[in-house]
Amino acid sequence: MFVAPLLALVAVWAVVVPLFQINPRVFPSVGAVGTAALESIRDGTLIAHVGASLLRVGLGTLIGIVTAVPLGIAMGVSAGVAAFLTPLFRFFSVLAGIAWIPIATLWFGYGFGAIVFVIFNAVFFVVAYNTLLGVKTIPHTVRNAAASLGAGRWALLTEVLLPGALPNIVTGIRTGLGFAWRGLIAAEMIATNVGLGYMLFVARDFYRTEVIVFGMIVIGVLWLLIDRLVLVPLERSTIERWGMVRRA
């Protein structure tokens, strides 16, 4: 059901390109994209590009989440501190990702370090900000309830603040990863010689539209897989099950 409209779109593409004899330098035929796909799978370049991109995203996101969540929770513990710091994090989450590319390449040089840094801070500020918001949304009575049932500082953190902020954290990860994914493609166009963004950008130099379109499909499918198979189920299992209000 979900796939049918997409298949129809491919069918239209298969008919339109030969029908109007569109120049392959402008838009490739389905067959050419298929050939490019098979070729890149056979000679291993696809695996190399996808692997490089996923490694960067994975590493940057992991570092981002691991550092942002504890920080966000620590900041959210005191309402005064949270209110004071909110504008700062708002400012930096606005800058998250792409705007850091120029300075990241200056600090780390072109390559792996700069790209991972861009992804890290796309995730870091958005997740930290959302975690802070999440902790702020936990009703005071729920914290009091835990304290009066004998929860200490550590238990308050693990049993109340972390699960209470989790829906916001997951939303933050989803947003941050969205920025990171775009930042990745942009950074790879500028600052490296391997990865999906690089694959697209180099193909442009030789007018290889079939490689570009294939790369775009790969990027789309990968993101759909990440979003639908990991992020959406995660959101559902927390927010919907617990009946907590979803924040846009």
Binding site: P139, T141, V142, N144, A145, A146, E159, V160, P163, G164, L166, T238, W242, G243, M244
Partner: peptide, 10 residues
């Protein structure tokens, strides 16, 4: 509590 203050995630 008046607002119950149950842990929604438990």
């Amino acid at each position: 509590f008046q607002s119950f203050a149950l842990f929604p995630w438990k």
